[in-house]
Design a protein around this nucleic acid. Structure first.
Length: 595
DNA sequence: GCCGTTTTCGGCCCGACTGTTTTCAGTCG
Protein backbone atom coordinates (compact mmCIF):
# COMPACT_ATOMS: atom_id res chain seq x y z
CA UNK A 1 0.00 0.00 0.00
CA UNK A 2 1.46 3.34 -1.05
CA UNK A 3 1.26 6.56 0.94
CA UNK A 4 -1.18 7.91 -1.61
CA UNK A 5 -3.43 4.86 -1.36
CA UNK A 6 -3.46 5.04 2.42
CA UNK A 7 -4.22 8.77 2.31
CA UNK A 8 -7.13 8.09 -0.05
CA UNK A 9 -8.42 5.46 2.33
CA UNK A 10 -8.28 7.85 5.28
CA UNK A 11 -10.12 10.47 3.25
CA UNK A 12 -12.74 7.85 2.49
CA UNK A 13 -13.17 7.22 6.22
CA UNK A 14 -13.52 10.95 6.76
CA UNK A 15 -16.17 11.18 4.01
CA UNK A 16 -18.10 8.27 5.49
CA UNK A 17 -17.99 9.88 8.92
CA UNK A 18 -19.27 13.15 7.44
CA UNK A 19 -22.25 11.38 5.95
CA UNK A 20 -22.90 9.52 9.19
CA UNK A 21 -22.85 12.79 11.14
CA UNK A 22 -19.89 11.75 13.25
CA UNK A 23 -18.20 14.25 15.59
CA UNK A 24 -16.67 16.85 13.35
CA UNK A 25 -13.32 16.88 15.10
CA UNK A 26 -12.94 13.17 14.50
CA UNK A 27 -13.55 13.95 10.81
CA UNK A 28 -10.93 16.69 10.90
CA UNK A 29 -8.50 14.29 12.56
CA UNK A 30 -8.86 11.81 9.70
CA UNK A 31 -8.44 14.57 7.11
CA UNK A 32 -5.34 15.78 8.89
CA UNK A 33 -3.81 12.32 9.06
CA UNK A 34 -4.61 11.76 5.37
CA UNK A 35 -3.00 15.05 4.42
CA UNK A 36 0.03 14.37 6.50
CA UNK A 37 0.58 10.89 5.04
CA UNK A 38 0.04 12.17 1.52
CA UNK A 39 2.92 14.60 2.04
CA UNK A 40 5.35 12.20 3.71
CA UNK A 41 8.67 11.81 1.95
CA UNK A 42 9.27 8.38 3.42
CA UNK A 43 7.29 5.26 2.60
CA UNK A 44 4.62 4.55 5.21
CA UNK A 45 5.96 0.99 5.45
CA UNK A 46 9.28 2.36 6.72
CA UNK A 47 7.48 4.00 9.66
CA UNK A 48 5.53 0.80 10.22
CA UNK A 49 8.62 -1.42 10.22
CA UNK A 50 10.42 1.00 12.52
CA UNK A 51 7.38 1.14 14.81
CA UNK A 52 7.22 4.92 14.52
CA UNK A 53 3.77 5.44 12.97
CA UNK A 54 2.86 7.60 15.97
CA UNK A 55 5.59 10.08 15.09
CA UNK A 56 3.68 11.13 12.00
CA UNK A 57 1.94 14.44 12.60
CA UNK A 58 -1.78 13.83 13.09
CA UNK A 59 -1.43 10.09 13.60
CA UNK A 60 -2.18 9.16 17.20
CA UNK A 61 -2.71 5.90 19.01
CA UNK A 62 -6.01 4.94 17.35
CA UNK A 63 -5.16 5.69 13.72
CA UNK A 64 -1.73 4.12 14.18
CA UNK A 65 -3.40 0.91 15.33
CA UNK A 66 -5.73 0.97 12.35
CA UNK A 67 -2.82 1.48 9.96
CA UNK A 68 -0.95 -1.34 11.63
CA UNK A 69 -3.89 -3.65 11.09
CA UNK A 70 -4.27 -2.76 7.44
CA UNK A 71 -0.57 -3.14 6.68
CA UNK A 72 -0.46 -6.44 8.51
CA UNK A 73 -3.62 -8.03 7.13
CA UNK A 74 -4.57 -5.90 4.12
CA UNK A 75 -7.86 -5.04 5.85
CA UNK A 76 -9.24 -2.89 8.59
CA UNK A 77 -12.35 -4.26 10.26
CA UNK A 78 -13.38 -1.00 11.90
CA UNK A 79 -13.14 1.08 8.74
CA UNK A 80 -14.95 -1.56 6.74
CA UNK A 81 -17.79 -1.50 9.22
CA UNK A 82 -17.97 2.28 8.76
CA UNK A 83 -17.98 2.00 4.95
CA UNK A 84 -20.71 -0.63 5.19
CA UNK A 85 -23.09 1.96 6.65
CA UNK A 86 -22.78 4.18 3.57
CA UNK A 87 -24.09 3.34 0.08
CA UNK A 88 -21.06 2.34 -1.98
CA UNK A 89 -22.03 4.50 -4.97
CA UNK A 90 -21.22 7.58 -2.86
CA UNK A 91 -17.46 7.14 -3.01
CA UNK A 92 -16.73 7.42 -6.74
CA UNK A 93 -18.77 10.65 -6.87
CA UNK A 94 -16.36 12.30 -4.47
CA UNK A 95 -13.78 12.49 -7.24
CA UNK A 96 -16.04 14.84 -9.22
CA UNK A 97 -15.07 18.46 -8.41
CA UNK A 98 -17.76 20.31 -6.51
CA UNK A 99 -19.31 17.16 -5.09
CA UNK A 100 -18.49 16.48 -1.49
CA UNK A 101 -19.78 13.82 0.91
CA UNK A 102 -23.10 15.50 1.69
CA UNK A 103 -24.09 16.16 -1.91
CA UNK A 104 -22.91 12.73 -3.00
CA UNK A 105 -25.00 11.08 -0.34
CA UNK A 106 -28.07 13.15 -1.20
CA UNK A 107 -27.75 12.34 -4.91
CA UNK A 108 -27.15 8.64 -4.36
CA UNK A 109 -30.08 8.15 -2.04
CA UNK A 110 -32.64 10.29 -3.86
CA UNK A 111 -31.70 9.08 -7.33
CA UNK A 112 -31.24 5.52 -6.07
CA UNK A 113 -27.77 5.10 -7.54
CA UNK A 114 -26.69 1.67 -6.46
CA UNK A 115 -23.77 0.54 -8.55
CA UNK A 116 -20.37 1.76 -7.38
CA UNK A 117 -18.77 1.14 -10.78
CA UNK A 118 -21.30 3.06 -12.84
CA UNK A 119 -22.21 5.76 -10.30
CA UNK A 120 -20.58 8.63 -12.19
CA UNK A 121 -22.14 7.62 -15.51
CA UNK A 122 -25.52 7.05 -13.84
CA UNK A 123 -25.36 10.52 -12.31
CA UNK A 124 -24.50 12.00 -15.68
CA UNK A 125 -27.53 10.29 -17.23
CA UNK A 126 -29.79 11.59 -14.46
CA UNK A 127 -28.44 15.12 -14.93
CA UNK A 128 -29.00 14.95 -18.70
CA UNK A 129 -32.55 13.79 -18.11
CA UNK A 130 -33.14 16.85 -15.90
CA UNK A 131 -33.66 14.77 -12.78
CA UNK A 132 -31.34 16.80 -10.56
CA UNK A 133 -32.95 20.21 -11.03
CA UNK A 134 -36.12 19.51 -9.00
CA UNK A 135 -34.26 17.97 -6.05
CA UNK A 136 -34.27 19.77 -2.70
CA UNK A 137 -31.14 21.88 -2.33
CA UNK A 138 -30.30 21.58 -6.02
CA UNK A 139 -31.43 23.61 -9.02
CA UNK A 140 -30.91 24.19 -12.71
CA UNK A 141 -27.54 25.75 -12.11
CA UNK A 142 -26.21 22.94 -9.95
CA UNK A 143 -27.39 20.40 -12.52
CA UNK A 144 -25.36 22.19 -15.20
CA UNK A 145 -22.34 22.45 -12.91
CA UNK A 146 -22.47 18.71 -12.21
CA UNK A 147 -22.63 17.94 -15.93
CA UNK A 148 -19.65 20.16 -16.66
CA UNK A 149 -17.68 18.67 -13.79
CA UNK A 150 -18.36 15.12 -14.94
CA UNK A 151 -17.36 15.92 -18.49
CA UNK A 152 -14.10 17.52 -17.28
CA UNK A 153 -13.61 14.56 -14.95
CA UNK A 154 -14.00 12.11 -17.81
CA UNK A 155 -11.53 14.03 -19.91
CA UNK A 156 -9.05 13.60 -17.09
CA UNK A 157 -8.88 17.34 -16.47
CA UNK A 158 -8.61 16.65 -12.79
CA UNK A 159 -5.85 17.67 -10.47
CA UNK A 160 -3.61 14.78 -11.53
CA UNK A 161 -2.63 16.97 -14.42
CA UNK A 162 0.37 18.63 -12.77
CA UNK A 163 3.10 20.27 -14.84
CA UNK A 164 6.82 20.47 -14.14
CA UNK A 165 7.84 23.71 -12.42
CA UNK A 166 9.69 25.32 -15.35
CA UNK A 167 6.65 25.00 -17.63
CA UNK A 168 4.38 26.56 -15.02
CA UNK A 169 6.92 29.38 -14.76
CA UNK A 170 6.54 30.15 -18.45
CA UNK A 171 2.73 30.31 -18.28
CA UNK A 172 2.82 32.43 -15.12
CA UNK A 173 5.22 34.95 -16.63
CA UNK A 174 3.04 35.28 -19.71
CA UNK A 175 -0.06 36.01 -17.63
CA UNK A 176 1.78 38.40 -15.30
CA UNK A 177 3.21 40.42 -18.14
CA UNK A 178 -0.23 40.63 -19.67
CA UNK A 179 -1.86 41.83 -16.45
CA UNK A 180 0.93 44.28 -15.62
CA UNK A 181 0.52 46.00 -18.98
CA UNK A 182 -2.84 47.37 -17.85
CA UNK A 183 -1.13 49.67 -15.34
CA UNK A 184 -2.13 50.07 -11.71
CA UNK A 185 -0.09 47.05 -10.59
CA UNK A 186 2.06 48.11 -7.65
CA UNK A 187 3.44 44.63 -7.21
CA UNK A 188 2.83 41.30 -8.87
CA UNK A 189 4.06 37.91 -7.64
CA UNK A 190 3.41 34.24 -8.10
CA UNK A 191 1.83 32.47 -5.15
CA UNK A 192 1.24 28.92 -4.01
CA UNK A 193 3.35 25.97 -5.03
CA UNK A 194 4.95 27.98 -7.81
CA UNK A 195 6.35 30.47 -5.32
CA UNK A 196 7.48 27.66 -3.04
CA UNK A 197 9.14 26.08 -6.11
CA UNK A 198 7.53 22.67 -5.77
CA UNK A 199 8.69 20.25 -8.48
CA UNK A 200 5.26 19.96 -10.09
CA UNK A 201 2.55 22.59 -10.19
CA UNK A 202 -1.20 22.11 -10.32
CA UNK A 203 -2.83 25.52 -10.50
CA UNK A 204 -0.98 28.76 -11.13
CA UNK A 205 -1.68 31.45 -8.53
CA UNK A 206 -0.84 35.12 -8.92
CA UNK A 207 -1.02 38.05 -6.48
CA UNK A 208 -1.38 41.71 -7.35
CA UNK A 209 -1.01 44.71 -5.06
CA UNK A 210 -3.19 47.48 -6.42
CA UNK A 211 -5.42 50.39 -5.48
CA UNK A 212 -7.66 49.68 -8.43
CA UNK A 213 -8.74 46.05 -8.04
CA UNK A 214 -11.67 46.19 -10.47
CA UNK A 215 -9.47 47.31 -13.31
CA UNK A 216 -6.91 44.56 -12.60
CA UNK A 217 -9.55 41.84 -12.37
CA UNK A 218 -11.17 42.98 -15.62
CA UNK A 219 -7.77 42.96 -17.27
CA UNK A 220 -7.03 39.50 -15.94
CA UNK A 221 -10.25 37.95 -17.19
CA UNK A 222 -9.59 39.39 -20.63
CA UNK A 223 -6.56 37.07 -20.89
CA UNK A 224 -7.35 34.44 -23.55
CA UNK A 225 -9.22 31.66 -21.74
CA UNK A 226 -11.54 28.73 -22.13
CA UNK A 227 -13.75 29.61 -19.20
CA UNK A 228 -14.12 31.92 -16.21
CA UNK A 229 -14.43 29.57 -13.27
CA UNK A 230 -14.91 32.15 -10.58
CA UNK A 231 -14.98 35.90 -10.20
CA UNK A 232 -15.38 38.04 -7.13
CA UNK A 233 -14.19 41.38 -5.73
CA UNK A 234 -10.95 39.87 -4.39
CA UNK A 235 -9.88 37.87 -7.40
CA UNK A 236 -10.84 35.54 -10.21
CA UNK A 237 -10.03 32.11 -11.63
CA UNK A 238 -9.58 31.23 -15.29
CA UNK A 239 -9.36 27.95 -17.11
CA UNK A 240 -6.89 28.46 -19.96
CA UNK A 241 -7.12 26.84 -23.35
CA UNK A 242 -4.36 24.41 -22.37
CA UNK A 243 -6.50 23.12 -19.49
CA UNK A 244 -4.46 24.89 -16.81
CA UNK A 245 -6.16 26.88 -14.10
CA UNK A 246 -4.91 30.33 -13.13
CA UNK A 247 -6.05 32.14 -9.96
CA UNK A 248 -5.46 35.81 -9.37
CA UNK A 249 -5.90 37.57 -6.01
CA UNK A 250 -5.82 41.32 -5.50
CA UNK A 251 -5.06 43.28 -2.36
CA UNK A 252 -4.22 46.87 -1.44
CA UNK A 253 -0.47 47.56 -1.18
CA UNK A 254 -0.66 48.27 2.56
CA UNK A 255 -2.21 44.85 3.28
CA UNK A 256 -0.32 42.93 0.59
CA UNK A 257 1.98 41.07 3.01
CA UNK A 258 -0.74 39.03 4.68
CA UNK A 259 -2.28 38.06 1.38
CA UNK A 260 1.06 36.98 -0.06
CA UNK A 261 1.67 34.91 3.05
CA UNK A 262 -1.78 33.36 3.06
CA UNK A 263 -1.86 32.23 -0.55
CA UNK A 264 1.73 31.10 -0.70
CA UNK A 265 0.91 28.28 1.71
CA UNK A 266 1.56 25.51 2.02
CA UNK A 267 -1.71 24.57 3.56
CA UNK A 268 0.15 22.62 6.25
CA UNK A 269 2.42 25.57 6.98
CA UNK A 270 -0.51 27.94 7.27
CA UNK A 271 -2.49 25.65 9.53
CA UNK A 272 0.52 25.23 11.80
CA UNK A 273 1.12 28.98 11.73
CA UNK A 274 -2.49 29.76 12.62
CA UNK A 275 -2.45 27.24 15.44
CA UNK A 276 0.74 28.82 16.75
CA UNK A 277 -0.79 32.31 16.45
CA UNK A 278 -3.84 31.22 18.45
CA UNK A 279 -1.61 30.35 21.41
CA UNK A 280 -0.63 34.01 21.35
CA UNK A 281 -4.23 35.20 21.14
CA UNK A 282 -3.90 36.12 17.47
CA UNK A 283 -5.94 35.02 14.49
CA UNK A 284 -4.48 35.04 10.98
CA UNK A 285 -6.15 35.58 7.65
CA UNK A 286 -5.30 36.94 4.24
CA UNK A 287 -6.32 40.37 5.52
CA UNK A 288 -3.93 40.60 8.42
CA UNK A 289 -3.50 39.59 12.03
CA UNK A 290 -6.43 39.98 14.38
CA UNK A 291 -5.96 40.48 18.11
CA UNK A 292 -8.65 38.24 19.60
CA UNK A 293 -8.97 40.41 22.72
CA UNK A 294 -9.54 43.73 21.02
CA UNK A 295 -10.88 42.39 17.74
CA UNK A 296 -8.58 44.76 15.90
CA UNK A 297 -6.95 43.67 12.63
CA UNK A 298 -3.43 44.85 11.84
CA UNK A 299 -2.38 44.98 8.22
CA UNK A 300 1.10 44.38 6.82
CA UNK A 301 2.65 45.60 3.60
CA UNK A 302 5.30 42.86 3.61
CA UNK A 303 5.56 39.25 4.68
CA UNK A 304 8.64 40.02 6.76
CA UNK A 305 6.54 42.32 8.96
CA UNK A 306 3.86 39.67 9.18
CA UNK A 307 6.22 36.99 10.47
CA UNK A 308 8.03 39.38 12.78
CA UNK A 309 4.74 40.44 14.37
CA UNK A 310 4.28 36.81 15.41
CA UNK A 311 7.74 36.79 16.99
CA UNK A 312 9.16 34.67 14.18
CA UNK A 313 12.06 35.02 11.80
CA UNK A 314 11.06 35.37 8.17
CA UNK A 315 10.51 31.95 6.61
CA UNK A 316 11.40 31.80 2.90
CA UNK A 317 8.66 30.29 0.72
CA UNK A 318 10.71 27.17 -0.13
CA UNK A 319 10.70 26.12 3.53
CA UNK A 320 6.98 26.57 4.15
CA UNK A 321 5.98 22.93 4.10
CA UNK A 322 4.75 22.42 7.65
CA UNK A 323 7.79 20.39 8.74
CA UNK A 324 9.63 22.12 11.61
CA UNK A 325 10.18 25.55 10.10
CA UNK A 326 7.96 27.38 12.58
CA UNK A 327 9.84 26.00 15.58
CA UNK A 328 13.11 26.96 13.90
CA UNK A 329 11.82 30.45 13.09
CA UNK A 330 10.94 30.85 16.75
CA UNK A 331 14.39 29.72 17.88
CA UNK A 332 16.18 31.73 15.18
CA UNK A 333 17.70 28.54 13.81
CA UNK A 334 16.49 28.55 10.22
CA UNK A 335 19.27 27.60 7.80
CA UNK A 336 20.84 30.16 5.49
CA UNK A 337 19.92 28.63 2.16
CA UNK A 338 22.15 28.24 -0.85
CA UNK A 339 21.71 30.79 -3.64
CA UNK A 340 22.14 30.48 -7.36
CA UNK A 341 25.09 32.87 -7.43
CA UNK A 342 27.09 30.54 -5.18
CA UNK A 343 27.25 27.80 -7.81
CA UNK A 344 30.74 27.74 -9.31
CA UNK A 345 30.52 24.83 -11.71
CA UNK A 346 28.34 22.33 -13.54
CA UNK A 347 29.65 18.78 -13.56
CA UNK A 348 27.08 16.97 -15.64
CA UNK A 349 27.19 18.27 -19.19
CA UNK A 350 26.94 16.30 -22.43
CA UNK A 351 28.86 17.74 -25.39
CA UNK A 352 28.37 16.84 -29.04
CA UNK A 353 31.51 14.68 -28.98
CA UNK A 354 30.42 11.26 -30.24
CA UNK A 355 31.92 8.39 -28.33
CA UNK A 356 29.57 5.65 -29.57
CA UNK A 357 27.28 6.04 -26.63
CA UNK A 358 24.12 4.01 -26.20
CA UNK A 359 22.29 7.14 -25.01
CA UNK A 360 21.80 10.66 -26.38
CA UNK A 361 24.80 12.81 -27.19
CA UNK A 362 24.58 16.56 -26.73
CA UNK A 363 24.19 19.13 -29.48
CA UNK A 364 26.68 21.79 -28.36
CA UNK A 365 30.43 21.76 -28.94
CA UNK A 366 33.02 21.77 -26.19
CA UNK A 367 33.90 25.33 -27.13
CA UNK A 368 30.31 26.54 -26.94
CA UNK A 369 29.89 24.95 -23.53
CA UNK A 370 33.08 26.50 -22.18
CA UNK A 371 31.98 29.89 -23.44
CA UNK A 372 28.60 29.49 -21.79
CA UNK A 373 30.29 28.49 -18.53
CA UNK A 374 32.32 31.67 -18.78
CA UNK A 375 29.20 33.78 -19.16
CA UNK A 376 27.66 32.02 -16.16
CA UNK A 377 30.75 32.89 -14.14
CA UNK A 378 31.74 29.30 -13.47
CA UNK A 379 35.22 28.35 -12.32
CA UNK A 380 34.97 24.82 -13.66
CA UNK A 381 32.84 22.43 -15.69
CA UNK A 382 32.74 18.64 -16.01
CA UNK A 383 32.02 16.88 -19.28
CA UNK A 384 30.01 13.81 -18.39
CA UNK A 385 29.10 12.21 -21.71
CA UNK A 386 27.42 8.82 -21.53
CA UNK A 387 29.77 5.83 -21.56
CA UNK A 388 30.35 4.06 -24.91
CA UNK A 389 27.82 1.34 -25.60
CA UNK A 390 28.90 -1.82 -23.82
CA UNK A 391 26.65 -4.10 -25.83
CA UNK A 392 28.32 -3.32 -29.17
CA UNK A 393 31.92 -2.66 -28.22
CA UNK A 394 34.66 -4.70 -26.58
CA UNK A 395 36.43 -3.48 -23.44
CA UNK A 396 39.64 -2.73 -25.29
CA UNK A 397 37.82 -0.74 -27.97
CA UNK A 398 36.01 1.25 -25.27
CA UNK A 399 39.31 1.96 -23.53
CA UNK A 400 40.77 3.23 -26.80
CA UNK A 401 37.69 5.43 -27.35
CA UNK A 402 38.08 6.92 -23.88
CA UNK A 403 41.77 7.53 -24.40
CA UNK A 404 41.14 9.32 -27.67
CA UNK A 405 38.34 11.31 -26.08
CA UNK A 406 40.56 12.54 -23.28
CA UNK A 407 43.08 13.79 -25.81
CA UNK A 408 40.31 15.50 -27.75
CA UNK A 409 39.10 17.38 -24.68
CA UNK A 410 42.67 18.42 -23.85
CA UNK A 411 43.15 19.82 -27.32
CA UNK A 412 39.84 21.63 -27.23
CA UNK A 413 40.69 23.05 -23.85
CA UNK A 414 44.08 24.23 -25.02
CA UNK A 415 42.60 26.08 -27.97
CA UNK A 416 39.89 27.56 -25.73
CA UNK A 417 42.37 28.88 -23.13
CA UNK A 418 44.53 30.51 -25.76
CA UNK A 419 41.40 32.35 -26.91
CA UNK A 420 40.54 33.67 -23.46
CA UNK A 421 41.42 37.32 -22.94
CA UNK A 422 44.58 38.07 -21.02
CA UNK A 423 44.08 38.74 -17.35
CA UNK A 424 40.83 36.81 -17.31
CA UNK A 425 40.71 33.42 -15.69
CA UNK A 426 39.70 30.51 -17.92
CA UNK A 427 37.05 28.09 -16.76
CA UNK A 428 38.72 24.81 -15.75
CA UNK A 429 37.67 21.54 -17.30
CA UNK A 430 37.25 18.05 -15.88
CA UNK A 431 37.05 15.06 -18.20
CA UNK A 432 34.31 12.97 -16.66
CA UNK A 433 31.85 10.36 -17.80
CA UNK A 434 28.27 9.41 -16.93
CA UNK A 435 28.44 5.67 -16.43
CA UNK A 436 25.40 3.39 -16.41
CA UNK A 437 24.79 1.28 -13.36
CA UNK A 438 23.92 -2.05 -14.94
CA UNK A 439 21.06 -4.11 -13.51
CA UNK A 440 23.52 -6.21 -11.49
CA UNK A 441 25.20 -3.10 -10.04
CA UNK A 442 28.38 -3.31 -12.08
CA UNK A 443 29.52 -0.25 -13.99
CA UNK A 444 29.30 0.07 -17.77
CA UNK A 445 32.92 1.19 -18.11
CA UNK A 446 35.85 -1.23 -18.16
CA UNK A 447 38.45 -0.87 -15.43
CA UNK A 448 41.21 0.14 -17.86
CA UNK A 449 39.14 3.04 -19.18
CA UNK A 450 39.01 4.76 -15.78
CA UNK A 451 42.57 5.93 -16.38
CA UNK A 452 41.21 8.40 -18.92
CA UNK A 453 38.71 10.21 -16.71
CA UNK A 454 39.10 12.52 -13.72
CA UNK A 455 35.96 11.15 -12.10
CA UNK A 456 32.61 9.62 -13.02
CA UNK A 457 28.92 10.22 -12.40
CA UNK A 458 27.08 6.91 -12.00
CA UNK A 459 23.39 6.73 -12.94
CA UNK A 460 20.50 4.33 -13.33
CA UNK A 461 19.15 4.15 -16.88
CA UNK A 462 17.48 0.75 -16.86
CA UNK A 463 15.63 -1.82 -14.74
CA UNK A 464 13.71 0.81 -12.74
CA UNK A 465 11.20 -1.62 -11.31
CA UNK A 466 13.54 -3.93 -9.42
CA UNK A 467 12.36 -4.81 -5.91
CA UNK A 468 13.64 -2.67 -3.08
CA UNK A 469 16.33 -4.98 -1.75
CA UNK A 470 17.73 -5.67 -5.21
CA UNK A 471 17.88 -2.05 -6.33
CA UNK A 472 19.37 -0.95 -3.02
CA UNK A 473 22.15 -3.54 -3.26
CA UNK A 474 22.67 -2.61 -6.88
CA UNK A 475 23.18 1.06 -6.08
CA UNK A 476 25.49 0.34 -3.16
CA UNK A 477 27.58 -2.00 -5.27
CA UNK A 478 27.97 0.74 -7.88
CA UNK A 479 28.87 3.43 -5.35
CA UNK A 480 31.57 1.28 -3.79
CA UNK A 481 33.01 -0.22 -6.95
CA UNK A 482 35.63 2.38 -7.91
CA UNK A 483 37.42 5.27 -6.19
CA UNK A 484 36.63 7.56 -9.14
CA UNK A 485 32.88 7.24 -8.56
CA UNK A 486 32.22 10.70 -7.12
CA UNK A 487 28.65 11.66 -8.02
CA UNK A 488 25.44 9.64 -8.01
CA UNK A 489 23.45 11.11 -10.90
CA UNK A 490 19.66 11.72 -10.74
CA UNK A 491 19.44 9.11 -7.97
CA UNK A 492 15.80 8.01 -8.12
CA UNK A 493 15.59 8.02 -11.92
CA UNK A 494 12.09 9.49 -11.82
CA UNK A 495 10.60 11.32 -14.78
CA UNK A 496 7.89 13.66 -13.61
CA UNK A 497 4.55 12.73 -15.07
CA UNK A 498 5.78 9.56 -16.73
CA UNK A 499 7.95 7.38 -14.51
CA UNK A 500 8.20 6.71 -10.79
CA UNK A 501 11.69 6.60 -9.37
CA UNK A 502 13.22 3.36 -8.13
CA UNK A 503 12.06 2.04 -4.77
CA UNK A 504 15.35 1.92 -2.88
CA UNK A 505 16.03 1.98 0.83
CA UNK A 506 17.37 5.51 0.62
CA UNK A 507 18.73 5.69 4.13
CA UNK A 508 20.97 2.70 3.43
CA UNK A 509 22.15 4.36 0.24
CA UNK A 510 22.83 7.64 2.03
CA UNK A 511 24.92 5.91 4.69
CA UNK A 512 27.21 4.60 1.94
CA UNK A 513 27.33 7.95 0.13
CA UNK A 514 28.36 9.62 3.36
CA UNK A 515 31.01 7.01 4.10
CA UNK A 516 32.50 7.21 0.58
CA UNK A 517 32.15 11.00 0.48
CA UNK A 518 30.14 10.67 -2.74
CA UNK A 519 27.87 13.57 -3.70
CA UNK A 520 24.21 12.99 -4.48
CA UNK A 521 23.27 14.84 -7.61
CA UNK A 522 20.41 17.30 -7.66
CA UNK A 523 19.57 17.19 -11.33
CA UNK A 524 18.03 20.45 -12.60
CA UNK A 525 16.38 19.02 -15.68
CA UNK A 526 12.65 19.96 -15.64
CA UNK A 527 11.32 16.39 -15.83
CA UNK A 528 13.81 15.12 -13.28
CA UNK A 529 14.41 17.52 -10.36
CA UNK A 530 16.04 14.50 -8.81
CA UNK A 531 17.01 13.92 -5.95
CA UNK A 532 13.53 15.05 -4.80
CA UNK A 533 13.51 17.73 -2.09
CA UNK A 534 12.13 15.48 0.66
CA UNK A 535 14.98 13.04 0.24
CA UNK A 536 17.44 15.93 0.03
CA UNK A 537 16.36 16.93 3.53
CA UNK A 538 16.79 13.37 4.81
CA UNK A 539 20.26 13.02 3.27
CA UNK A 540 21.37 16.40 4.61
CA UNK A 541 20.43 15.32 8.11
CA UNK A 542 22.71 12.34 7.61
CA UNK A 543 25.61 14.57 6.57
CA UNK A 544 25.73 13.67 2.88
CA UNK A 545 27.05 16.19 0.30
CA UNK A 546 25.32 17.22 -2.92
CA UNK A 547 26.23 18.39 -6.39
CA UNK A 548 23.70 20.47 -8.34
CA UNK A 549 23.98 19.83 -12.08
CA UNK A 550 21.96 20.58 -15.18
CA UNK A 551 22.48 17.38 -17.22
CA UNK A 552 22.68 19.78 -20.18
CA UNK A 553 22.47 18.22 -23.64
CA UNK A 554 22.51 21.70 -25.16
CA UNK A 555 24.36 24.79 -23.96
CA UNK A 556 20.96 26.45 -23.39
CA UNK A 557 20.16 23.80 -20.78
CA UNK A 558 22.99 25.13 -18.64
CA UNK A 559 20.59 27.92 -17.70
CA UNK A 560 18.33 25.44 -15.89
CA UNK A 561 20.59 25.53 -12.82
CA UNK A 562 18.16 27.71 -10.76
CA UNK A 563 15.64 24.86 -10.72
CA UNK A 564 18.17 22.52 -9.13
CA UNK A 565 19.05 25.25 -6.66
CA UNK A 566 15.38 25.60 -5.71
CA UNK A 567 15.21 21.85 -5.00
CA UNK A 568 18.28 22.26 -2.78
CA UNK A 569 16.68 25.20 -0.98
CA UNK A 570 13.49 23.23 -0.37
CA UNK A 571 15.66 20.51 1.11
CA UNK A 572 17.19 23.10 3.47
CA UNK A 573 20.70 23.09 1.99
CA UNK A 574 23.34 25.75 2.61
CA UNK A 575 26.37 26.37 0.40
CA UNK A 576 28.47 24.09 2.63
CA UNK A 577 26.33 21.11 1.71
CA UNK A 578 26.92 21.52 -2.00
CA UNK A 579 30.34 20.63 -3.45
CA UNK A 580 30.01 22.76 -6.57
CA UNK A 581 29.93 25.91 -4.46
CA UNK A 582 33.56 25.14 -3.53
CA UNK A 583 36.26 27.25 -5.19
CA UNK A 584 38.33 25.36 -7.75
CA UNK A 585 41.12 24.08 -5.50
CA UNK A 586 38.83 22.81 -2.81
CA UNK A 587 36.50 21.30 -5.37
CA UNK A 588 39.35 19.51 -7.19
CA UNK A 589 40.51 18.11 -3.88
CA UNK A 590 37.06 16.75 -3.25
CA UNK A 591 36.72 15.37 -6.77
CA UNK A 592 40.06 13.56 -6.63
CA UNK A 593 38.94 12.18 -3.31
CA UNK A 594 41.93 13.48 -1.37
CA UNK A 595 41.41 13.59 2.33
C1' DG B 1 -9.36 11.34 16.98
C1' DC B 2 -5.24 14.37 18.09
C1' DC B 3 -2.48 17.09 21.07
C1' DG B 4 0.30 20.16 24.76
C1' DT B 5 6.16 26.78 25.86
C1' DT B 6 -0.91 28.29 29.90
C1' DT B 7 -3.43 22.40 28.98
C1' DT B 8 -3.45 14.83 29.99
C1' DC B 9 -8.89 18.03 29.38
C1' DG B 10 -10.89 20.76 26.40
C1' DG B 11 -9.86 22.79 22.88
C1' DC B 12 -9.39 21.96 17.63
C1' DC B 13 -7.49 27.31 10.99
C1' DC B 14 -9.87 30.75 8.17
C1' DG B 15 -12.41 32.94 4.76
C1' DA B 16 -14.41 33.21 -0.11
C1' DC B 17 -17.57 31.76 -3.17
C1' DT B 18 -21.73 29.39 -4.87
C1' DG B 19 -26.37 28.12 -5.02
C1' DT B 20 -30.36 28.04 -3.03
C1' DT B 21 -31.37 29.85 0.52
C1' DT B 22 -34.14 34.65 3.38
C1' DT B 23 -29.55 33.17 7.11
C1' DC B 24 -27.06 28.98 5.56
C1' DA B 25 -24.59 24.59 4.13
C1' DG B 26 -21.32 22.68 1.28
C1' DT B 27 -17.06 22.87 -0.94
C1' DC B 28 -12.64 24.55 -1.79
C1' DG B 29 -7.92 26.10 -1.17
Amino acid sequence: MTNHELAELLKKVSAAYQILGENRFRIIAYDKAADSIEHLTTDIKDYWIAGTLGEIEGVGKTIAEHIDEILKTGKNRHWESVFAKVPEAVFPLLFVPGIGPKKAYALVTILRLENEKSAVTDLEKAAKAGKIEPLDGFGKRSQDVILEAISAFKKGQIKENRMPLPYADVVAIEVMEYVAKAGGCEKIDVLGSLRRKVATIGDIDIAVATNDPDKIIERFISFPHQKIIEKGPSGATLLLANGKQVDMRVQTPKAYGAMLQYFTGSKQHNIALREYALTKGLSLSEHGIKDLKTGKVRVFATEEQFYHHLGLDYVVPELREGRDEITMAKKHSLPTLIEKGQILGDLHIHSSYDLHSSHDVGVSSVKEILETADILGYEYVGFSDHNPSVSNLSSSVITQIMKKRKKYYEQQYYSYTTGVRKGKKATSLFVMCEVDIKPDGSLALPEDAFEFVDAVVVSLHSAFTQPRKQVTDRIIKALTSHAKVRIFGHPTGRLLGSREGVDADWKEVFVVAKEKNIALEINSFPERLDLPDGLVAVAKEMGVKFCIDTDAHDKAHMNLMPYGVSVARRGGLSDDDVVNTYPYTKFAQWLYNKK
